[in-house]
Simulated scan of single mutants.
Amino acid sequence: MKVGLFFGTFNPIHVGHLIIANYMAEFSDLDEVWFVVTPLSPFKKKSSLLDNHHRLAITNIAIEDYPKLKASDIEFKLSQPNYTVNSLVHLEEKYPMHEFCLIMGEDNLKGFHKWKNYETILQNYELYVYPRISEGSTENKLLKHPKIHQVNAPIVQVSSTFIRKSIKEKKDIRAMLTPSVWKYIDEMNFYKH
């Protein structure tokens, strides 16, 4: 089975994440897409991050009607700060029958050369890159790499940061979340303060 790994804090998971993941599962050669909920990115501050178990719960709620999408807490058990290369090794040991690939936005590919052991990742894993509108878009030489596949997934300009800020400002952003995710966030009073 070929599994695409979509790493992120998913704080919270929104329709943009679902559209990309579902597109990858339906329109590429990936059999499943796993949302790997990360405890803390080495590049992000922790202040506005919901607890791991809440973000995992929200992700599971969001994907309950999508059999090709799964949520993974694999990184919760790894020592922090964790790096993608360690997660890949861990997943391969745990699921030797699966072939794992990485899913990332074109904007993340720009900084990919800064990732720990990025050459090793590129040597051993395929990357599925979806388009993102970003400032100062420049041609990325990595896009021509044989292990990198550009997937023409829809561009959705929604961010978790925008959603958190909007909830705090008491804006109605329900359309950007699945109804069940909105209900959970609202009932738990997340992001309101």
Score class of each variant (00 low, 15 high):
residue 4 G to C: 01
residue 5 L to R: 04
residue 5 L to S: 05
residue 5 L to I: 06
residue 6 F to Q: 03
residue 7 F to H: 04
residue 15 V to P: 02
residue 16 G to E: 08
residue 18 L to I: 14
residue 21 A to V: 02
residue 23 Y to W: 12
residue 23 Y to G: 09
residue 24 M to S: 12
residue 24 M to I: 15
residue 29 D to Q: 07
residue 29 D to T: 03
residue 30 L to H: 07
residue 36 V to P: 01
residue 40 L to W: 05
residue 41 S to W: 05
residue 42 P to V: 05
residue 43 F to D: 12
residue 43 F to E: 14
residue 45 K to H: 12
residue 50 L to N: 10
residue 50 L to R: 11
residue 51 D to Y: 13
residue 52 N to F: 14
residue 57 A to R: 13
residue 58 I to N: 09
residue 60 N to I: 05
residue 60 N to Y: 09
residue 61 I to F: 05
residue 62 A to T: 06
residue 64 E to G: 09
residue 65 D to N: 14
residue 69 L to T: 04
residue 71 A to D: 03
residue 75 E to Y: 02
residue 78 L to N: 12
residue 79 S to Q: 15
residue 79 S to R: 09
residue 81 P to V: 01
residue 83 Y to E: 04
residue 85 V to Y: 03
residue 85 V to L: 02
residue 85 V to G: 03
residue 88 L to V: 06
residue 88 L to Q: 01
residue 91 L to N: 02
residue 92 E to N: 15
residue 95 Y to T: 07
residue 99 E to K: 03
residue 100 F to Y: 00
residue 102 L to K: 01
residue 103 I to H: 03
residue 103 I to T: 06
residue 104 M to P: 07
residue 106 E to C: 08
residue 111 G to N: 12
residue 111 G to Y: 11
residue 112 F to E: 00
residue 115 W to A: 10
residue 116 K to V: 06
residue 118 Y to F: 04
residue 120 T to F: 14
residue 120 T to G: 13
residue 120 T to C: 13
residue 123 Q to S: 11
residue 126 E to A: 15
residue 127 L to A: 05
residue 128 Y to M: 01
residue 129 V to M: 07
residue 131 P to Q: 05
residue 131 P to I: 10
residue 134 S to Q: 12
residue 136 G to Y: 13
residue 137 S to T: 13
residue 137 S to A: 14
residue 139 E to Y: 13
residue 141 K to I: 14
residue 142 L to C: 07
residue 143 L to S: 14
residue 144 K to R: 14
residue 146 P to A: 15
residue 148 I to Q: 13
residue 151 V to H: 11
residue 152 N to P: 06
residue 152 N to S: 15
residue 156 V to E: 04
residue 161 T to Y: 01
residue 162 F to P: 09
residue 162 F to H: 14
residue 163 I to M: 11
residue 163 I to P: 06
residue 165 K to H: 13
residue 167 I to N: 07
residue 168 K to V: 02
residue 168 K to H: 13
residue 174 R to H: 10
residue 176 M to L: 15
residue 176 M to G: 04
residue 179 P to W: 00
residue 179 P to E: 00
residue 179 P to Y: 00
residue 184 Y to I: 07
residue 186 D to H: 09
residue 187 E to Y: 04
residue 188 M to C: 11
residue 189 N to E: 10
residue 189 N to I: 03
